[in-house]
Amino acid sequence: MSENPSSASSLRCLMRMANHTTLATIASGHTQVSDGWPVTSMVVHAIASDGTPLLLISELADHTRHILADDRVSLLFAPPPILAGGVSGIETDTARLTVFGRAVRDDAPAIRACYLRANPDAAQYADFADFGFYRVSVDAAYWVGGFGKQRRLPGDKLILPDCQALIDGHDDIVAHMNADHLDALSDIVGHFNNADPNTGWKMHAIDCDGMVLTAKTGNPDMLRIDFPAPIRTPGDARDILVEMYKKSRA
């Protein structure tokens, strides 16, 4: 990941780190406030390979009814708090990112697969008749990194273009790494993370900014390792993984 906390790659990683997002919609037919009132709710998201936010929401929810009337939304992302000295409630990381865009229903298989890879438990209700997948087409973003630290950027600077080849090749990359290169993944974990490298790491997912690994025992359910630079194609994925493996063995 870029060392610049306001770079596009760092902002995409901030979105991926967040375990939920605050969704703001415009009230329409709400039972408590008049039309046009701003309404917020908490939703669980996923981030597509190129950085596009994805949602799985129910038509029974107020926010979905609002979106069907007016698709303009805002999403507020913040990483899990870093606690000073392990003392509960003292947050030392105040970075947050607001994304402005339009929520569009999209049940494409690739979007469904991406969302369920990030949120496996959602498979229990993803096929309910009232649920649907939505992608947020990003118009703009606003980052605040603390007092006096901010950046505003258009959506086409946040979302990485030309990632379709990586999306299409996702499953083949994962299958290849897990069939032939588990030793390389273990070495990469040992070099780029402080997790135990000897617990059977396998690739779970890959995107333009990094990869998610899972292990059989003794580690978090999912471990994310960011890449030193964004990738767009399976060839880029091969090159960056080879580079990281070589560094881990040096």
Rank of each mutant, 00 (worst) to 15 (best):
S2C: 01
N4W: 00
S6G: 02
S7M: 01
A8G: 13
L11T: 04
C13R: 15
C13Y: 00
N19E: 06
T22Q: 12
H30V: 00
D35P: 09
W37Q: 08
W37M: 11
W37F: 13
P38Y: 02
P38F: 01
P38V: 04
V39D: 02
T40C: 14
S41N: 10
V44Y: 04
S49W: 06
D50K: 02
G51T: 05
E59A: 15
D62G: 03
H63A: 01
L68D: 09
P81I: 07
A84W: 00
A84S: 14
S88C: 01
T94Q: 10
F100E: 07
V104K: 11
V104Y: 02
D106L: 13
P109W: 08
R112V: 12
A113E: 12
A113I: 00
C114Q: 14
L116C: 03
L116V: 01
N119F: 00
N119Q: 11
D121S: 09
D127M: 13
D130W: 10
F131E: 06
G132L: 04
R135L: 10
V136H: 11
S137N: 10
W143C: 03
G145M: 09
G145T: 10
L153W: 06
L158D: 09
P161H: 13
A165K: 12
H176I: 02
N178C: 03
H181V: 01
D183C: 00
I188L: 09
H191D: 07
A195M: 14
D196G: 09
P197G: 08
T199E: 14
K202W: 03
I206C: 07
D207E: 05
M211P: 03
V212N: 06
T214Q: 11
G218A: 03
D221V: 08
L223T: 13
R238T: 13
D239N: 14
I240E: 08
V242N: 11
K246V: 15
S248M: 04
